[in-house]
Nucleic acid binder design. Structure first.
Lengths: 341, 341
DNA sequence: CGTTTTTCCGTAAACGTTTACGACAACACA
DNA sequence: TGTGTTGTCGTAAACGTTTACGGAAAAACG
């Protein structure tokens, strides 16, 4: 049986109120008694019951991370999230906050899981990933007045929540830039068909760069597919059968790139030789693939830490002296040049 | 402001006791009142405050998953855990249990995190991963009488906790079998140097199979290294420089295999041609590597679900009519034959 | 009709904290 | 000596539940 604050108080012949104040560093407690309480706490191996303080304080001291699986994706964007989670949880731990991971089946069910977290107050705030362009989770949380932050932007909600995103627009732009500089003018773009916001941002950058280089955007070179290997495999031939064959492809997802390369191989087209391939976003798979795929890499672990900070800055309970701030950031990607372009 | 059980009771002109009983499906409540309570709960959008019930019931309704990073591994065994976590959390969700993920810095610090979870009762039970042969976390939890289950076996503790592991021994055995059948007799084994239990199991199987085939175990063909790519890169040349060069290598970790293949490439030795390579355990990287690596694959998601079931069966609060049972299982791996052997 | 049983519900305590409030002593000051 | 201030602590309420207990009414039984 674990020791409670009552045991501690009894052991010290002191009231539980004083014990609590001593433990919580309140000012109105004698320095000497504080020492005795601290010593006794260590000796009796006391630590405050979390449920008790949660109830009293109305705060659970835990943050929920919602990993919404794509309907297409069997792997939950696999390699992407672990480093991000690592960073997120590391920073949260510094503030004595726990990390709750909520997944769930693809589709509508996720909303149920989210409601449950919010309504039963299992977490003090929520971190959303896989943001859609129109994201009902964001609408719901905004309306409910529940604190949250997002990894990725969205068009839903006003800008009253912290968000951290990768600069997909710039990555699309830079990818085109790089390819044009290497003599390409027929550049295809393949992205997920879902409403994921980054797909739009990427295409914006792609178009902008083409325009800047005086290259007309050919709709036949733009294709959408399932956000998985099969999707890339399925949709890549479509752009390759375009009248005027592309000499380069930018994939807006690593799994799709892998599937696309498989399709290319079957057509006898070798990435790095017969066609240039660039991937947004890099994962370990890109590095070990043959040929190693040139890709844009995010700093996932620092991003996790940063989003934690941004979320905390928006929570009154954690906001510094400057008060509650809503921060929104867009981070650049780093180009990792490999053998595929 | 969220509605409490008091609001509900006031709204219905009924006592909170009755409301609670109605909501919790207790028998001693009129069918009619129960309907009214349920309807009102839906209408007022009531759901019970989690902290409140936790405090009263002495149960948090959440399970902590401890992901202890290897000191060597920058990636937290990256691809391995997401599918496992997916299965684990899916099954837990069916029982209305939350999943808390606890990571932490490598080494001793993890113990602190574990103590915190246990002592502040932030979770009802713990799931351990990356079990060591001698695992002080297991000792601690056993001594504290805190419920837990492990992914992976250990020599620590008695067998009074549920555990689910992969049959590394059999995989090592089968790998040797396969290689011998293909004419190999000089077979190297490379495994992590840490105290991870699976490294021992693997080597047992490896030795047993060699003995069965009448092949003498050559210590020069067995090497340990850091459990990461650099470790494989570093240690592979050592076995290759053995007097009588091996014609096959079994890697007991995917990252080490990748590093090992890099070393082999630099020595002009091509896996699949000049040497046979088999990996335990398979990850997506093995599949996309060139040549694609033959590997033993676990069923991670089902394993996650299964371990959840086993843990729950050991918890009095969830145990079925048959009572609290400690279950220990060892699951086989499936050989995925590719191009490297 | 009296007695026993059953059905249903209200009361109140308890879980372990935190914190507003007030009390008391000690001390300073006039 | 009286008044005000400061430092320290105890008391008790509150957070939102669940549940043991008892009681009243209704039903069943003789």
């Amino acid at each position: 049986m674990a020791s409670s604050i009552h045991d501690l108080a009894r052991h010290l012949n002191i009231s539980i109120g004083t014990v609590s104040r001593a433990l919580n560093g309140r000012a109105d407690v004698n320095a000497d008694t504080r020492q005795r309480v601290l010593a006794a706490a260590k000796q009796l191996n006391y630590s405050p019951n979390q449920s008790g303080r949660s109830l009293r304080q109305g705060a659970t001291h835990s943050i929920a991370f919602m990993l919404q699986p794509h309907p297409d994706d069997q792997q939950y964007g696999e390699p992407f999230f672990i480093p991000f989670l690592t960073g997120l949880q590391a920073r949260l731990a510094e503030y004595d906050l726990d990390l709750m991971v909520v997944m769930g089946e693809p589709g509508q069910y996720q909303q149920e899981r989210l409601r449950r977290v919010v309504e039963t107050r299992r977490a003090d705030a929520v971190v959303l990933a896989n943001t859609r362009r129109e994201d009902d989770r964001i609408d719901y949380l905004s309306k409910a007045g529940f604190p949250f932050a997002t990894l990725g932007r969205s068009q839903s909600g006003d800008d009253t929540y912290p968000s951290l995103d990768i600069d997909f627009e710039r990555a699309g732009d830079e990818a085109v830039d790089r390819l044009v500089a290497r003599g390409h003018r027929r550049i295809a773009a393949i992205r997920p068909s879902l409403d994921l916001n980054f797909g739009y941002l990427f295409l914006d950058g792609y178009r902008k760069a083409l325009k800047r280089h005086g290259i007309e955007v050919d709709p036949g070179l733009i294709a959408d597919g399932f956000i998985n290997e099969a999707g890339g495999y399925q949709v890549t031939p479509r752009v390759m059968l375009s009248k005027d064959r592309p000499t380069a492809i930018i994939f807006n997802n690593d799994a799709m790139a892998l599937g696309g390369c498989k399709a290319l191989a079957e057509m006898g087209i070798r990435p790095g030789h017969d066609i240039a391939v660039i991937v947004i976003v890099d994962t370990p798979l890109c590095r070990y693939f043959s040929p190693a795929l040139t890709a844009f890499r995010p700093s996932l672990e620092p991003m996790g830490r940063r989003l934690a900070e941004m979320l905390l800055a928006s929570l009154p309970a954690f906001a510094g002296p400057e008060g509650t701030r809503i921060i929104r950031e867009v981070w650049p990607l780093e180009l990792i040049a490999r053998d595929s372009d």
